[in-house]
Amino acid sequence: MSNAYALPFAEKPRVTERAGERLEQMFRDHHPRVWRTLRRFGLTPEAAADATQQAFLIAAERLDDIRAGSERAFLFGTALRLARGAHRSARRFDLDGSMDDHLIAGKPPDDLLDQQRKLTLAERVLATLDQDLLEVFVLFELEGMTTPEIAALVGVPLGTAASRLRRAREAFREAASKLERSLRRPEAR
């Protein structure tokens, strides 16, 4: 490893003022959703933050290739590939152990316990989906993309994307239904 790698900031990408403004706008508009999508793909908050940084650095390096209006698609496509290469996170917490570095939008602190409980349960359900179904499900149900957009992003034919979405929804609903039934059963103690 060269000294340059030990001092990585000596190799900053050359970003013009105009490109800097565009990147700034991209970061403001998209970084929470990029981070959240990475979380939904199974990364921890920290790993999602690192991958988000990577996505924006890659965007900076390829800025001239990103057509105005397709910034979100570029960032999500990059995030998807980063997530595929990253390790999956454990979805269990140690007591007094790891804490999610996140907030639930618009919720007052008193409501956080319930919100986080829901989030934990929701993540449990999401974790039942296979990776290829998970990607399509998250992009459609949570990020509001259309099936053609997802097909292009994931790199599969439209019919395959539609089929994956149908199976993903069935799998999600089945897992959610199981969970709901189990939560509603009278507790035995």
Partner: peptide, 16 residues
């Protein structure tokens, strides 16, 4: 409810 909690998660200000 489950999907809403997933859709509303955001990075904390300090993480951003």
């Amino acid at each position: 409810e489950l999907l809403g909690s997933l859709a509303n998660e955001q990075p904390s200000p300090s993480l951003s």
